[in-house]
Design a binder for these strands. Sequence first.
DNA 1: ACCTGAACACCGTTCAAGT
DNA 2: ACCTGAACACCGTTCAAGT
Lengths: 168, 168
Amino acid sequence: MGNSREDVVNAALKLLDSWGLEFFSMRRLAGELDVQPSALYHHVASKQELLGFMAARIVGQVEVDADVVASCHRLRAAMLAVRDGAEVVATASAFRMGVSELEARLAAVTTPDVARTLLLYVMGHTEATQLHRQASSLGVIEADPDLDASFDRGLAIILTALPAAVDA
Amino acid sequence: MGNSREDVVNAALKLLDSWGLEFFSMRRLAGELDVQPSALYHHVASKQELLGFMAARIVGQVEVDADVVASCHRLRAAMLAVRDGAEVVATASAFRMGVSELEARLAAVTTPDVARTLLLYVMGHTEATQLHRQASSLGVIEADPDLDASFDRGLAIILTALPAAVDA
DNA sequence: ACCTGAACACCGTTCAAGT
DNA sequence: ACCTGAACACCGTTCAAGT
């Protein structure tokens, strides 16, 4: 039929959300698209590049405005919206893709250092939240009802420095 | 000859440091120990558990005292000392192992929220540093001479909130 | 442009059996 | 207690060839 790269990324995100990163494989994705595994490499150079496209999509529509706390909440929500989304974004963003744009937009409403600190914090906390929720939904661990509030307190800790940093 | 779990973890850390996480496999580790792959499962329940033991060892001897900045520097140095160390610790610590002890010690000299924020920041920044250094040593990217200073500025941003938080 | 078929060089893990 | 041998059920990626 002729898939496009967009089709591949769409199917990949769907597969990730229903199976999780652990079972996300190129061969499984090929199966989902009714195509041979080798066909995927017509649309994508490697699995890692594909994960980068997926991360960019997860994070791509997040709006960043002057309300820094709300912006961080939106980023967190976007990553939590797809299974293992935070891990995919964190891994890919270490390699830089799409997230650097987010950092720039955040820097525009704060400072470069605050933006970087904030972003590392949001990703780390969100990844921990997602793993914790997954573990607790499997009954491996008791749920931590403080996770959401703890996110806000960390945000506040980082943003305490903002007024002084903007003056500098 | 009879290996102990300690032997396995030692060999694993050596293998990680010389090959990197990408090429770290149970089969390769078995080869290094002159043993069949299946023998490893006598000492360790899974690869994930083994990575947890490795992370605990990387982070285990880090001293945490009242000098929070110096403590964070020591943690950072410990992770940077072994190839892909930050990634191994970050992944394992999301699953909790040994790092929770570090968080507790850090909380004792700050507050629980500051400790958590600090730890997420230190791990995220160190992982990014390590990946960046690796990429730049491969010539994929130019070196960023600001990375070390940027680490300190982020630390300062988080610690701005500390006096108020301790009073509360 | 998009895909197939076949292959290459691997994986983690289990399990009966040996010493 | 520690290990072997053999198997199971997979991986990511390449590449000539087809349409």
